[in-house]
Simulated scan of single mutants.
Amino acid sequence: MHTLYLDAFSGISGDMFIGALLDLGIDFEEFKRELAKINVSGYDLENEKILKSSIFGTSFDVHMHHGEKDHGFVENHVHHHNHDVRHLADILKIIDDSDLKDAIKEQASDVFTEIAKAEAVVHHVEISEIHFHEVGALDSIVDIVGCFVALDLLNVDKVISSTLTDGSGFIDVAHGRMPVPVPAVMQMRVGSQIPIKQDASIHTELITPTGMGIVKNIVSEFSEIPSELTVEKIGYGFGKRETGGFNALRVLLLEKKN
């Protein structure tokens, strides 16, 4: 088993996390076979080795066959046909009905529930009223489940992280203008001791609700790299936002010194 260290100098999102783990050397075909156990269709996975600032890393993305990627929950007062949206319960059923390992099902369901709880508080609705676009929900299912599939393939049993870094200012979303950290990310700090520092030179979000949900679920401590561990491999997962800086999540696979 291994310890994973998250060097989150530019925040974290689901695709950055998966990209970084793939960059450590996961067999992409095996990763796709495991994800296929969700038993859903309508997407393709992209795994591309790219160069940024003379550093090679991996860009991971989920491409939907129809519709748009996940843009968060759909407000209850907006009229949608039933086939256009998925409730949290629908998403949890898809995960539970899959052929994935029970531990992966449990962790992915916990992250979805954590995000939905935060959104429900922020938008002052019951958690049962939280809706996600059907296509967007599929994107998030693949993203979140993929994180735990990748951890399992790497035999990671412990995750440590640096302090998380977020941007600053405001971002424009479907519901209007939101402060950074975005409200769902800030809400997930309630009841936790997750340290976040803001970079005033970056005027956009660096920590997504998915990224925060993953951190809250898997990270057991926030610290420097433990002195009793040595670095075995390093991976970089690139983000999609143009931040004006080096937008990547760096992960270190650690093992005990001999």
Rank of each mutant, 00 (worst) to 15 (best):
Asn82His: 12
Asn82Leu: 05
Asn82Ala: 12
Asn82Lys: 10
Val85Cys: 10
Val85Thr: 11
Val85Gln: 02
Leu88Ile: 12
Asp90Pro: 05
Asp90Arg: 08
Ile91Lys: 11
Lys93Leu: 14
Ile95Thr: 13
Ile95Arg: 14
Asp96Thr: 15
Asp96Gln: 15
Asp97Ile: 01
Asp99Val: 06
Asp102Ile: 09
Ala103Ile: 12
Ile104His: 04
Ile104Val: 15
Lys105His: 12
Lys105Tyr: 11
Gln107Thr: 10
Gln107Cys: 04
Gln107Ala: 10
Ala108Lys: 01
Ser109Gln: 13
Asp110Ile: 02
Asp110Gly: 00
Asp110Pro: 01
Val111Met: 04
Phe112Met: 11
Thr113Leu: 14
Ile115Glu: 02
Ala116Met: 14
Ala116Ser: 15
Ala116His: 12
Lys117Trp: 11
Ala118His: 01
Ala118Arg: 12
Ala120Leu: 10
Ala120Cys: 04
Val121His: 07
Val122Leu: 02
His123Thr: 03
His124Tyr: 05
His124Asp: 10
Val125Cys: 12
Glu126Val: 07
Glu126Phe: 10
Ser128Thr: 14
Ser128Cys: 06
Glu129Ala: 13
Glu129Val: 00
Ile130Val: 15
His131Lys: 15
His133Cys: 01
Glu134Leu: 00
Gly136Cys: 07
Ala137Glu: 09
Leu138Gln: 03
Asp139Trp: 09
Ser140Ile: 09
Ser140Ala: 14
Ile141Arg: 02
Ile141Phe: 07
Val142Gly: 04
Val142Phe: 12
Asp143Pro: 08
Asp143Gly: 09
Asp143Thr: 13
Asp143Met: 08
Ile144Phe: 03
Val145Gly: 14
Gly146Asn: 10
Gly146Gln: 14
Cys147Asp: 12
Cys147His: 06
Phe148Tyr: 04
Val149Asn: 02
Ala150Val: 06
Leu153Asp: 09
Asn155Pro: 03
Asn155Trp: 05
Asn155Tyr: 11
Asp157Cys: 09
Val159Thr: 12
Ser162Ala: 06
Asp166Gln: 00
Asp166Glu: 00
Ser168Met: 00
Gly169Ser: 08
Gly169Cys: 10
Phe170Cys: 10
Asp172Met: 03
Asp172Leu: 10
Met178Leu: 15
Pro179His: 14
Pro179Ile: 05
Val180Tyr: 09
Pro181Ser: 01
Pro181Lys: 00
Val182Phe: 01
Ala184Asn: 07
Ala184His: 03
Ala184Gly: 01
Val185Ser: 04
Val185Thr: 04
Met186Ser: 07
Met188Ala: 06
Arg189Phe: 14
Val190Tyr: 15
Val190Phe: 13
Gln193Ile: 02
Gln193Phe: 09
Gln193His: 07
Ile194Ala: 08
Pro195Ser: 07
Pro195His: 01
Ile196Trp: 01
Lys197Gly: 00
Lys197Ile: 12
Gln198Asn: 11
Gln198Gly: 02
Gln198Glu: 11
Ala200Tyr: 08
Ser201Arg: 11
Ser201Gln: 08
Ile202Leu: 06
His203Ile: 03
Thr204Met: 07
Glu205Phe: 12
Leu206Asp: 05
Leu206Gln: 13
Ile207Met: 02
Ile207Tyr: 06
Thr208His: 05
Thr208Leu: 08
Thr208Lys: 07
Lys216Phe: 08
Lys216Asp: 14
Lys216Cys: 07
Asn217Ile: 04
Val219Leu: 01
Ser220Arg: 08
Glu221Ile: 03
Phe222His: 05
Phe222Pro: 03
Ser223Pro: 12
Glu224Asn: 12
Glu224Pro: 06
Pro226His: 09
Pro226Ser: 06
